[in-house]
Design a protein around this nucleic acid. Structure first.
Lengths: 192, 192
DNA sequence: GATTCGATCCTAGCACCGCTAGACAAGTGA
DNA sequence: TCACTTGTCTAGCGGTGCTAGGATCGAATC
């Protein structure tokens, strides 16, 4: 019994190592640099070992995405918990969200840009993704305004943040006035 | 002289063929399917011919992006020209923008998601890109509201549209309430 | 303690990718 | 007609994701 348990533990540890290494490599050199060969070399195993844990590269990206979604949810909740009024909570949420995207660009891409084989806006959406949306909804729902469905408001606000995050990082928006754009967004969209 | 002119004409025609074929292939089967081999086969030339027109695949994507940006600008201007008041213009703009993204997903990706080697928010930004932003600015600038820089407002509104476009298409947002989200965005952001 | 046997892992290889060197043919001007 | 430029193609490089099949190692059995 114990032997098998030890093996399962080791196997789980190796799986975590794969995900962590993929993430690290992606943040260091971008997802293009995350090849199965390089990844295998970094974890000091051969290539096929990766395929005994994941169906393919896509699933590895998906695993990084789930890990990242949980962190994003936690970051948002931590930021909003420290704020007093609804408006301040929304400010804090927006800043925390954009800050996460800026600090973890590869992870952010894994969650929202790349194909990690994850289902969204579905009943079989993985729990961390649903929870990340829930974290947004908790603070954004209370500033949706009369007659506006909280979920719909959250989706719209989230999309705006997502646009700012991606366009800024892709060099499509000059980074100087990032703070002003956030203020504009919050001031106009949030109803207090 | 005339011989050389004819050759240049033919060469230009072939270059247009390459760009059009790349775009077509991308819209049909996605950018992943646009390989230099397949593209060469479709235009009935060998692979290296592509490299006599473009430095590489990236530049081909860039060419599609520029073509698309010009169309996007035209679509936005056509839609806003038909509207009477500022608010209606913004509605029309938002719908035209999202419609373009939905109808030409591959082109939209080439412009805003993929690396086409294009400079943005720079002095050496290609003209079609600057003009596309200008097209947005023309209608959005007039609803920025007092004390808000029109350019900054346009950037923010654009980012919100971009977020809606990408998240919807990537399956991150359910497509049902797309219209409601647009209305919410316009009603809250635009000051009339 | 030797032996069987199954799980585990690696070597080698597939078809494909972007890109390029060098051979070759076709068309141009003398 | 001939030299030469120009244009195009064949073939190949190193890389990619992924997999088949053989080797190895450790656990359980006699």
């Amino acid at each position: 019994m114990s032997v098998q348990e030890r093996k399962e533990r080791e196997r789980a540890a190796r799986e975590r190592l794969i995900v962590a290494t993929a993430r690290e490599l992606a943040e260091q050199q971008g997802w293009d640099a995350v090849t199965t060969r390089r990844l295998a070399e970094r974890i000091e195993y051969s290539q096929p070992v990766l395929y005994s844990h994941f169906r393919g590269k896509r699933e590895i990206i998906g695993a990084v995405a789930l890990e990242g979604a949980a962190e994003l949810a936690a970051a948002v909740r931590a930021a909003t918990a420290a704020a007093d009024c609804p408006r301040e909570r929304v400010y804090a949420l927006a800043r925390a969200y954009l800050d996460f995207a800026a600090r973890n660009p590869a992870v952010y891409d894994a969650i929202f840009q790349l194909d990690g084989g994850l289902a969204f806006a579905h009943e079989d959406t993985p729990e961390p993704l649903k929870d990340a949306f829930a974290a947004l909804l908790e603070s954004l729902g209370e500033v949706a305004g009369d007659g506006v469905h909280p979920g719909l408001f959250t989706e719209t606000f989230w999309a705006a943040l997502h646009g700012l995050a991606t366009l800024t990082r892709a060099g499509r928006l000059p980074p100087e006035d990032a703070e002003l754009r956030v203020e504009l967004l919050v001031d106009r969209l949030a109803v207090v």
